[in-house]
Design a protein around this nucleic acid. Structure first.
Lengths: 350, 350
DNA sequence: TTGAAAGCGCTAACAA
DNA sequence: TTGTTAGCGCTTTCAA
């Protein structure tokens, strides 16, 4: 057990291991990388030498020749304004949605020994940095989670020929793989549930209609209600925010005081709607049933707890990671997209 | 403007730029790295060549020779149990404390072009991976945010001679730089405030007394109260959790029904204490004044909003990043620690 | 099945 | 001030 004199300086290299094992660097490399055609006995010797020397491969040297870093960027991107005050939106972390995405990505990547680098791209400068980050080979590809629809980063990446995948379908068609949820299916779930509850005078509060998801949710809801014999469904457009949800609910109540069921395009607006209904003395769900969308943390914070449509965010994020790795392996492969089915989560509001 | 034939394959290298500029690789390298002693005219030529070729330095090649990656790991560590179900604690992201830490770190590092890699180290295996991550040269150092006191990772890193810094003083003395908050000062702030309000029968709910921060907060509070002429302050030990806070408050009320001021060692327990007081018909702050510690999101969620002690978490995190970079530059420098003063945030509970 | 040798793209002595 | 050159530690042909 006495061998492998400690290397004079720095940590041991392949050379040191090779010398300790009495083989060539190439052989040690083969053992480490699990290349077949290596004599089992030699494999064992090499393994012992590795343990004895405490060898750890140098990632830089490895990357230089393989042109891979084995790391990916997890980019939280948006259409933020140049010169924004806060360079790092704390709220991103507070957002349970992002937490679930990160959880799904890490859950898939960690067993593969890949750890995501966290990048924020709220400004043009930051977006340019992301592109550079990938071009410098600091990461092999990027998983993008956009907070806004008009995010220019996906196009930048595609134009740069950099491997990237997207959470949610891009507004403009782009040759990029993405995952998304079947918004229409989710909206149908909400419609079916409201009808099954016996709601007859149903309305909806949509998201901003320049956002794809909002369009799809509205269309899906209307289609499903039409199937149930309700050809016209009143709609007030919101902006996915608390304030806009409150305003929309007020207007809905003013224009359709007899409403007994509302599908709200996201939980945040639904939470506000619930408060408005409460102020107006309407009991939820008895007088008015409310269904939200997202199953965000807001859904549980609601009074009463919100019945809503849940994305399989973690699964979607894991699939996204898988798609990215596939694209890194085979850059010229056709883009793939995967649409996930959402599920109805019944709580007390409907 | 017609030069630099596009490189045959892959992206341009230093060689390509050098050829386009009619100089040597070394000169281009000097220009890129801002080394002085380069003829301004040549500098300009080189810059144009860089722009013309679209050159971006290869990080792997650079790291191989400089032995620096220019990236750091942000490690969320704990004393988690082996084989835990959830490999990635979503709640970490939900925790506003972590968000603030990350914000401070990113705020400091991003202008330097450094992006943190997010690592989780809840299990022994994960901790070994963190050590390997650094040993492989995938990051130059680690910023550790431990969720538990007995986290073994700091020692692993120190023993490995790997650059690392800690958020919060390690329980066992360790040659590692850290930042922390002056717990005793914070507790004194709380004491002074309660006394100034006119509280005469003051008690405290401490954290688990095997945790340093809990010890310091208790001692600091008692010392300050003694200065105000209250030599003995009743104390019930909690566990920094909601449940333990409620239990402690119940006990306090049973043993000292005439209490009119309580310092609770963290906001979560204070929140529970508030609920218990409410159940017992005690008005806060009129009957009983309550001061928490941390200024976590719980403080604002309380009814009434909690008066509490706030850490300058972002500043602390930024300083931590600075300490790490300093240590990476000068590995054999003595460890430094910086203690930050907390501040009293007066809301409605006291 | 194994070894020798040629780089990967860059920085940093050392010369000129 | 600039160029030449020698590696950094690894993977990967190509021969043996």
């Amino acid at each position: 057990m006495s061998e492998a004199p400690p290397p004079v300086s720095g940590s041991p290299t392949l050379e040191d291991v090779a010398r300790a094992a009495g083989v060539s660097r190439a052989t040690v490399s083969r053992v480490i990388n699990g290349v077949r055609n290596v004599n089992p006995a030699i494999q064992e010797t090499v393994r012992q030498a590795i343990a004895a020397t405490g060898y750890v491969p140098n990632q830089a040297a490895r990357s230089l020749v393989t042109r891979r870093t084995g790391s990916v960027a997890l980019v939280v991107s948006g259409a933020g304004v140049e010169g924004e005050e806060n360079p790092f939106p704390n709220q991103v972390f507070a957002d349970p949605f992002f937490g679930r995405v990160a959880g799904g990505v890490v859950g898939y990547l960690r067993p593969l020994g890949i750890h995501p680098v966290l990048l924020f791209a709220e400004t043009d400068a930051a977006r340019a940095e992301v592109v550079d980050y990938l071009r410098q080979g600091k990461a092999d590809g990027a998983i993008l989670v956009s907070t806004h629809g008009e995010d220019p980063l996906p196009k930048l990446l595609v134009d740069g020929g950099l491997p990237a995948v997207l959470f949610a379908r891009p507004p403009e068609p782009l040759p990029i793989s993405y995952v998304d949820v079947a918004h229409r299916t989710g909206a149908k779930l909400a419609a079916d549930h409201l009808v099954a509850r016996g709601c007859h005078r149903v309305a909806t509060i949509s998201g901003p209609l320049d956002v794809l998801a909002a369009q799809d949710r509205l269309a899906g809801f209307r289609d499903a209600m039409a199937m149930h014999g309700h050809p016209y469904i009143p709609c007030v457009e919101g902006a996915f925010t608390l304030d806009s949800g409150a305003a929309a609910m007020e207007r809905l109540l003013a224009e359709h005081p007899d409403v007994d069921g509302v599908f709200v395009a996201n939980d945040l607006m639904a939470q506000a709607a619930l408060q408005v209904l409460h102020r107006h003395g309407r009991l939820v769900p008895d007088d008015v049933a409310v269904v939200g969308f997202d199953d965000s943390s807001a859904a549980l914070a609601c009074k009463p707890p919100l019945t809503t449509i849940r994305h399989p965010v973690e699964d979607m994020a894991a699939e996204l990671a898988r798609l990215l790795l596939a694209q890194i392996e085979q850059p010229d492969q056709r883009v793939t997209s995967v649409i996930f089915d959402p599920a109805l989560v019944v709580r007390e509001s409907a």
